[in-house]
C-alpha cells in the first residue's frame, strides 16, 4: 500500500515536474517572442521617430518636391535655412541711408514688467534689440545701458542661461563708452541667445525674437522718414527692399508649423506682403568679378526700387499695426 502510494506520489511528482519544465520552457519561448516583438516595436518606433524628425527638418523640401516632382535638385536638399537681417544689420543698413533720431517712437525700456508670458517676452527681446541698435547709432550711452539692462532681465525671464545669454551684458559698464565694444556685446548676446534656444529645442522662441526685431526695425524705418523729402530716397528704397526679407521671415515661421504663437502673425505678415506686392524691384544683371587674392567676389548688378507714396503709407500703417500688437498687451 505504502509502495503504491509512493509510486503514485512519484508519478505525480515527475508529471508535475515535467509540466513545470514544459511551462518554464513555454514561458521562456513566450518571453523570447515577446522580447523580439518588443525589440521590433522599439526599433520600428525609433526608425519612425527618426524619419518624423527628418521630415520636420525637411518639411519645406517635401512640399517643394511635391510641387516639382521633376526637380531632382530639390529632392536632394535635406535642409533649408532662412535668414532675416538682425537688429544690428538693420541698424547698419539704415545708418548708411542717413537716419534721423526720434527716440519717442521706441518702446520704452521701462515696459519690461508689462510682459509676463514667454512668447511676449521673446518678441520684446527682439524689439529691444532693434531699439538698442537704433539708439547706439546716435551714441546715446545712458539709454543704451537702460535697454541692455532690460534685455538682461528678459534673458533671465526666458531662462536663457547666464553663461549663454547675458554674461556679455555684465561687461557693459566697462565697455559702454566704446561704440565697437557695445556692438560686440550686442552681437554676442543675441547670437548666444539664438544658439542656446536652438540647442534646447526652442527654435520657435528664437524665431519670435527675430520676428520682434525685424518688425521693430521696419517700424522705426517707416516712422523716421517723410516720403516727400528727396533726401529720404535711400532709406525709402531700403524699406522697399525689405520685400525679400519679409518672404524669408514668412518661410522661417512656416518651418514651425505647430507653433500657434508664431502662426498668429502669418495673416498679418501676409497682409504686409500684399502691400509689398505693389513695390517693384527691377533687377539688371551684370558681370560677377572674383578676386582670388582678396578672397572677394563682387556682384555687379543694378536694382531699381519703385515705391509710390500710397504703397509707402500702406506699408507704414500695416507694420505699425503689427508692431502695436507686439508691444501692447
Amino acid at each position: 500500500m505504502n509502495l503504491k502510494l509512493f509510486i503514485n506520489f512519484g508519478t505525480y511528482f515527475v508529471t508535475s515536474l515535467h509540466k513545470k519544465i514544459i511551462f518554464v520552457e513555454k514561458f521562456k519561448t513566450y518571453m523570447m517572442k515577446t522580447y523580439k516583438f518588443l525589440l521590433l516595436i522599439l526599433i520600428g518606433g525609433l526608425l519612425l521617430g527618426w524619419s518624423c524628425n527628418s521630415s520636420t527638418d525637411s518639411n519645406q523640401i517635401d512640399n517643394d518636391s511635391l510641387n516639382n516632382v521633376k526637380n531632382e535638385h530639390t529632392k536632394r536638399v535635406k535642409k533649408i535655412f532662412y535668414n532675416v537681417p538682425s537688429p544690428i544689420e538693420m541698424a547698419s543698413i539704415i545708418q548708411k541711408s542717413g537716419a534721423q533720431y526720434k527716440p519717442e517712437i521706441l518702446n520704452s525700456y521701462k515696459n519690461t514688467d508689462k510682459y509676463v508670458n514667454v512668447p511676449k517676452q521673446a518678441l520684446i527681446l527682439g524689439v529691444y534689440g532693434s531699439d538698442l541698435s537704433y539708439v547706439r547709432l546716435f551714441d546715446q550711452i545712458q539709454l543704451s545701458i537702460n535697454y541692455l539692462s532690460s534685455i538682461k532681465k528678459l534673458c533671465d525671464e526666458l531662462n536663457i542661461s547666464e553663461d549663454q545669454g547675458s554674461i556679455a551684458i555684465s561687461r557693459m559698464e566697462k565697455n559702454i563708452d566704446k561704440r565697437d565694444s557695445l556692438l560686440q556685446i550686442m552681437s554676442e548676446t543675441y547670437s548666444s541667445a539664438d544658439a542656446y534656444l536652438k540647442e534646447n529645442d526652442r527654435g520657435n522662441t528664437a524665431t519670435l525674437i527675430i520676428l520682434g526685431g525685424w518688425v521693430e526695425a521696419l517700424y522705426i524705418c517707416t516712422n523716421i522718414v517723410e516720403f516727400d523729402i528727396p533726401q529720404n530716397k535711400d532709406i525709402i528704397n531700403r524699406i522697399g527692399e525689405q520685400k525679400y526679407s519679409l518672404n524669408n521671415l514668412i518661410e522661417l515661421i512656416n518651418s514651425y508649423p505647430d507653433d500657434n504663437e508664431l502662426h498668429k502673425f502669418i495673416p498679418l505678415l501676409a497682409e504686409l506682403r500684399g502691400k509689398y506686392d505693389l513695390v517693384g524691384i527691377e533687377y539688371v544683371k551684370r558681370e560677377v568679378v572674383t578676386e582670388k587674392e582678396k578672397k572677394l567676389t563682387t556682384i555687379h548688378s543694378k536694382a531699381n526700387v519703385s515705391i509710390n507714396k500710397t504703397s509707402f503709407e500702406d506699408i507704414k500703417t500695416t507694420i505699425s499695426s503689427i508692431r502695436n500688437k507686439i508691444v501692447n498687451n
Binding site: 535642409k79 533649408i80 544689420e89 531700403r238 536694382a303
Partner: peptide, 14 residues
Amino acid sequence: GDVAELLLTFYSGQ
C-alpha cells in the same frame, strides 16, 4: 551626399 541651402538677402553697400 546631402545638400543644404541658406536663403538670405545681401543688401547693397554691405
